[in-house]
Design a protein around this nucleic acid. Structure first.
Length: 272
DNA sequence: CTCTATGTTTAATT
DNA sequence: GAATTAAACATAGA
């Protein structure tokens, strides 16, 4: 579930479940979550108060005061909430048991493919520090983008997925943003006009806003502790190879860029 | 069985 | 150096 809007939804839920509670215990049933680095010592979190849950790009940071818990959802990670007695989902890899007054709650991390990460530290991790500005929290600095993109030669879609340029955009939203911008995903970044860069920035804001609004609506309706996922119908060109372009009717094409499937309209999306 | 998948990192190659 | 490509991680679904 992992691009900016999905992670922001996870942050929202995690914050509701955790903020203001006290950690009873953290249990990690999968050592791979730390990626071979020093295995996180779960003992250092017991008894700590959860001060809040932050997000930058696709990373989550649970603030325990002196200690930080970083979470990246990879491809299939998600956070869930259950009562401590209830059975865990199949691929639950970690549990955080917390206490709010008398009541106990078990917040579980579920990740079938185990491409996610979970790291306990006292300082910000390098991956977090390396992130570029977050389009939601920091906004998009278009003049900076024009300068940065002008220095590079790679395809604009690959650049959009670079987390050090803008944090939080993945394959889906890069694909959607470029459709909204009317820009061919193969366009070299140094060939983009300032006008095109502005269009790309607007496209990014638009696709993120659409998803964020969907999550807001799902939460307002569905209520508690339930993460809704976006489906194939929620996107305009992503996953729609062979279908007619919603704007001009031309056949949506699929290519591979940066190792990822990329759909676009060959008529609406121009190189220059 | 084959192909694909909302991510990241590392190594090899151009 | 920069850019591209492939592989690896491990699993589910079409």
């Amino acid at each position: 579930m992992p691009e900016l809007p999905d992670v922001e939804d996870a942050r929202h839920e995690l914050s509701r479940w955790l903020t203001g509670t006290t950690v009873v215990e953290l249990h990690l049933s999968d050592t791979r979550l730390g990626r071979g680095k020093r295995a996180p010592p779960p003992a250092m979190v017991a008894g700590r108060r959860v001060l809040g849950v932050g997000r930058r790009g696709k990373w989550l940071r649970i603030d325990l005061g002196e200690v930080l818990l970083f979470s990246h959802l990879g491809m299939t990670g998600k956070w869930t909430c259950r009562s401590p007695g209830a059975p865990a989902e199949r691929s639950e890899r970690a549990q955080i048991v917390v206490r709010r007054r008398r009541a106990r709650l078990c917040v579980g991390y579920v990740d079938a493919r185990r491409l996610g990460r979970l790291v306990v530290t006292r300082d910000d991790i390098p991956e977090w520090r390396a992130l570029g500005p977050d389009p939601l929290a920091d906004g998009i600095d278009v003049p900076r983008l024009i300068v940065e993109l002008g220095k590079q030669r790679r395809a604009v879609k690959v650049a959009l997925m670079d987390q050090s340029l803008l944090a939080g955009i993945g394959n889906v939203h890069a694909t959607e943003a470029l459709f909204f911008a009317g820009v061919d995903p193969r366009t070299r970044t140094d060939a983009l006009s300032p006008r095109q860069v502005r269009a790309v920035a607007r496209g990014v804001r638009r696709t993120l806003a659409r998803s964020l609004a969907r999550y807001r609506k799902a939460r307002a309706r569905g209520g508690s502790g339930y993460v809704s996922e976006e489906g194939p119908d929620d996107f305009v060109v992503y996953g729609r190879e062979g279908e007619p372009c919603p704007r001009c009717g031309a056949r949506i094409e699929r290519i591979v860029l940066g190792g990822r499937g990329t759909t676009f309209c060959p008529r609406c999306q121009r190189r220059s």
